[in-house]
Every structure is written in structure tokens, then in C-alpha cells.
Computed example of a mutant assay.
Amino acid sequence: MDKALICGSFAFDNIMVFNDQFKNHILPDKVHILNVSFLVPELRREFGGCAGNIAYNLKLLGGNPLPMGAVGTDFEHYAKWMDEKGINREHVNVVDDTFTAQAFITTDMDDNQITAFHPGAMNYSHNYSVLDVSDPAVGIVAPDGREGMIQHAREFVSAGIPFIFDPGQGLPMFDGDELMKFIEQATWLTVNDYEWQLIQERTGKSQEEISAKLKALIVTKGPEGSLIYKDGEVIQIPAAKPSVLQDPTGCGDAYRAGLLYGLTNDLDWETTGRIASLMGAIKIEHQGTQNHHFKLADFKRRFKEAFGTVF
């Protein structure tokens, strides 16, 4: 089965709920001497990171994910989870004397959030090379350490491996010229509609100018579905309807796994986009980024129910 090399981050997401409102404890006229403490009786620690999430979702579909990333010495529990799910860890590299990247997210009753992010081992992703991987069919450069993203894109080109550029939350790290370099190197670009607007503003390029440099540009629009720009045409992908709206975190990674599945199985873009759309819908029905499960036969049944076709 064709391998998909997934370059990106691994992280722990520590999610805490404060059963009150931040505004009741942060005095505007005292922010210059801010010293607050929040009691958070609810705490979840989730496996996350773009490479981890994409690999998990692609494995659910029966794909062959090969994630590459840098992790810390605290990764053992996550590693055990990956082994249980049959996800290859050959290129998941432990960096001595570091922690795995992690986010600490506190949410209040108004859905306001205070987040601290520690990149940890992610900053060492450039120490590991795409060229050390044998024969991946396709790749993806997902959010990761800045130097790692630059290097891995360059190495995909050097190795002649087609790849998706997925800037995601890493987009603010790059200026317009750097983003254009990624786009010129990439085979496909995938972004949400907000990221797409930022890219156009930062590069000064239009949709037509950017699409001309790619085999396909994929723009997701949440409940409005997604658009795939290819060869001068626009393919409209409808959104699959989730049974319940639980947690949108990680939906983009699930969608990208669907894209990789379609690319590694030589599916047309209409089918690939719909698989990606359904992956996002299934993810949003569950808390966390790697807590959903399904059998491929059930996925195909739900695909037919959602779109009236089969794959």
C-alpha cells in the first residue's frame, strides 16, 4: 500500500475548564500587576499535533501513514497509543532533555480561552530528513517547527515526491515571499478560508495566480463545504452533516487525512473531497482529536448516505 509521509508536529493538549468567568477575577485597572489563579477541577490530556492527528485519521481509513516528527522524553504514553493503533513510529524521533510540544488551554464559562504553548521538541524537527524515508508516494508539510517545514518542503522537491503544503497555524511564521516559495515547491495547497485570505493578503497574489502554480488548491469553508480549484475549474464539495457538534478541534487534520487517502488511492477529486469532508464531520462529533473510531465498511455506508454515491 502506498505510503504517505506526514511531516508535522506531535503534541499533548492539556485542556482545563474553569467553572466561572475570567472577567470576575481579572481587574482591568490591575492588569499591570496581574497575579491570578484559577481552580480547574476538570482536566483532559489529549494526544494531538498535526502529524499525529493526520496519521491517526489516515490509519482509520486503511491508509499507510508514516509520520515524521520530533518528540520529547515524555512521549512514552503517546508512543504506546500509536503502537496500539498500528501507526508506524520509525520516523518519530525522541530528542533528549526536552518535552514533547504541548498546549495548556484553560476555558471559562463564556468560552474564553487562555492558552500557553510550549514548542519543546518541535523546534528540532529540522534534524530529521525526508531523504531518510524510502519510497513514500506522497507527502505533506503540516505545521511544525519553522526550520523543519522549510527543510522538509525542499527535501520533498529534491526527492521528486509530490506533497501537500498545509501551513495551518504555522502560517504567521512566514512572510509573503516565503509562502510563495512553499507554493512553488508544493504540488497541492490546502487551507481554510481564513488562512486563504491571509495568504492572498501576504503574497499579494490572486486565486488564479496561486492556482496556476499548483495541481490543486483546496479551501475548506466549514459548514459550507470546500472548494477545489483545479485546471481552471472549481469543484464544489458539500459538507457532510455531523450527527452532533461536539468539538471542532482537529477537524482540519481529519480532512487532510481524507485528501491523502484519495491521493494514495488515485481517486478523483470529487470523491477525495467528499471523503475528506466526511472525515471532518465524524471528528467534530467527538471530544479531542483522536477519540473517534470506525470500521471502513461503516465509513463507506455513511458516505453513501451523505452523498448518494460509493467509492
Rank of each mutant, 00 (worst) to 15 (best):
P136D: 05
G160Q: 13
D111P: 00
D132S: 15
F156V: 10
L260K: 03
I284N: 04
G139E: 02
G222L: 01
T271A: 03
D96L: 07
C50V: 13
D193M: 04
F182P: 02
Y124D: 15
L131R: 15
A240E: 03
S9F: 01
G222W: 08
T98S: 11
A116S: 13
E233P: 01
E184S: 12
N24C: 00
H126Y: 14
G170W: 07
T100P: 12
N53Q: 07
D110N: 14
K181I: 03
C50A: 14
F299D: 12
D266Q: 15
H126K: 12
G168H: 09
G170H: 09
M109H: 08
Q290E: 10
V95S: 01
M279L: 08
M68S: 04
R302W: 13
L66K: 05
M279Q: 14
D193L: 01
I15M: 11
A306D: 13
I218G: 10
D247Q: 08
M122R: 03
G258T: 06
G52N: 07
A79V: 06
G69R: 02
T220V: 05
E209K: 13
D231N: 15
I26C: 01
F163I: 05
A4Q: 05
M68A: 09
Q151P: 00
F299T: 09
R44F: 13
A51T: 12
P41R: 09
A297D: 15
D13I: 01
V157W: 11
A153H: 05
L189D: 07
A159C: 11
P67M: 06
L66D: 01
K30F: 13
P172S: 04
Q197R: 11
G176S: 11
I15R: 08
F156S: 14
V219W: 00
E270C: 00
G232S: 10
L27C: 10
G225K: 10
I210K: 09
L39D: 15
A121M: 01
Y229R: 07
W269S: 02
K283N: 11
I228C: 03
H25S: 02
V36K: 12
C50G: 02
D2Q: 11
Q102T: 01
N19W: 01
Q185V: 00
K181L: 09
